[in-house]
Structure formats: structure tokens, C-alpha cells
Amino acid sequence: MNPILILIAKRLGLGLLTLWFVSFGVFFAIEALPGDTAEAILGQSATPETVAALRKELHLNQPALLRYWNWQIAVLTGDFGTSLSNGRPVSELIGTRLGNTMFLAGMAALISVPLALCLGLLAALWRNSLFDRLINAVTLTSISMPEFFIGYVLIFAFAIRAGILPPMSAISPTMGLPDRIVFTILPALTLTLVVVAHMMRMTRASLVNLLSLPYVEMARLKGAREMRVILFHVLPNALGPIVTVIALNLAYLITGVVVVEVVFVYPGLGQLLVDSVSSRDLPVVQVSCMIFASAYILLNLTADVIAIVSDPRQLHRT
């Protein structure tokens, strides 16, 4: 059997085990937080009787381990349960939000990955030039600024001053694709500014590392032009670390965008997770965390597979 397929199967198995650990961890982390859904929902107006009544209705009076076991069995049969706080099916609650998060992450990735690769390539090609220094300075500055600040600056420039883009990205399911894109540009740009530096610098560093090796010298002596040397001789060997960094950043785009969602009023998964943690809504928190964990596992797996395919030597090292 193809060793790569075996590797994928092994890693997926390990991934499932990781997910199980994560679900266990999340469950008891939420349990450890003070208060429960009944208290969180009733808030100020809570009296001991109403809290008890709500707990009974939500089965929160059962022991924690039993609830975890029941949840696990239900998930294995494909039932993600209903939200404790508003009684809606978790799959329905998360469905639209997940779609929105993926859309934003996709837009940001479409802009940032090619941009980072190109800038990194050019910086390696013209290393130590004025361009190299400028692009380093600019990307490092943008990564050093907090996301909400970048977001507000973009809103100020494009929505308030220029008036060409909407400041709020409150997209709705009934919106057409062109509208969706217009509404998502500003948050996607914000995320781009945050992730480009990491990917760009990794691209540049991996390329520059290899550029000092003898085989590159050989290629140059052969008379290959610098662009060709970088694209065809160096890049394939540098792909491994670059892809790993890209995967890491894509995972970040999916999981770490709560602040951007709040600033742009974007209805993504992050805000849902924050709300659900504050209302101790375990089924929703669990599934959101599972999704985030899966994104990390799958993207890392993809990165490894691409690295191995681009450099078969890696297969024998693992």
C-alpha cells in the first residue's frame, strides 16, 4: 500500500484520539467554571426555585460524568444535541456561523497566501535591498499592531473617510455573493495584515537558507537566471516549512478571529463560542471546540502530506 495513505490513516486515527481528549478537557473546563447555564440564563432575576426548575428541565441535576457519557454517545450517533440556552439544534446554530467563518477565512486566505508568497519570493530575490527592508518593516509593523486597532484604522479610512466600504459586516444568509464579498473585504483585509508577516518572513528565510547551498551555486554556474534558480531549484526544497507556516496561519484564520468579528459585527463562530462560554452552554461550546480542533488537525496533516510529497526524503525520516 502507498506509504502516504498509510501515514494519512495513522494520523487521522491519532486525530480522533486528540479530539476525544479535547472534548474531555472542554467538558471539565466548563464544569470547573463557576455557575451553570441555569444561573447564567436567569441572571439577576434568579431565585433558588426557578434555578432548580430550569436545571431539572436541562438535566443539569445529573452527575457530570453521566452527562458527558450521554453527550458522547449522542455525538457518536450523529446527534449534536440542542443548545441549553435557547433550545435550538446545535447543528442549525453552528451551521450558518461556520459557513460565515469559512467564508471570511477563505477570503483572507485568498488575499494573504499569494501576497505573502510573492512578497517573500521577491524579498529573497532582492535580499538586503531597500525593497527587502521596506517590506520587512511594513509587515512587522502590521503584525505588531492589535487586530482591533488595524480594524478601526481600516474602518476610519475606507468607511468613514472614503465612504466606499460598509463599516459593519453584518452579512445575512439571504445576501448574494457580490454583496457578501463587499461586506467581507474590510475584515478580510484586517486578517491579511495580521497573518502576512509570519508567512512572508518564513518564505524568505527558507529560501535564503537554501540559497547558500552548493547545489544552488551549481545551478547558477550552469547559467540559470536568479528567478529560475529560486522558483525551480530552491522553492521545492523550501516548501515543507512554508506550507507548515501557511497551515498554522489558516488555522488561526478559522479559530482566532473573535476580536475581528466583534469590531466588524461579523456573525462568525468566534462570537458564538464566546457567548456560549459565558452562558455555560456546553453542547455548543463542545461542537465549536471540536470544529476548531479538527481544523488544526486537518490543516497540519495536509501541510505534512504536501511537505512529504514535495520532498520524498521526509517519508523515511518519520
Binding site: 478601526y152 474602518i155 468607511a159 468613514i160 465612504g163 460598509p166 463599516p167 459593519m168 453584518a170 466583534v262 469590531v263 466588524f264 459585527v265
Partner: peptide, 19 residues
């Protein structure tokens, strides 16, 4: 009827006429 938790977002939305 929108929920806009961030107060800055509410202000920019009204200032630019989005709401």
C-alpha cells in the same frame, strides 16, 4: 433589528448611515 455589541461599531454604523 441588529445586535451590535461593540459601541464603536454602533457609532460608525450610524455615522455612515448603515443603520
Amino acid at each position: 433589528l441588529l445586535t451590535v455589541a461593540d459601541k464603536t461599531a454602533r457609532i460608525t454604523a450610524i455615522a455612515t448611515g448603515q443603520v
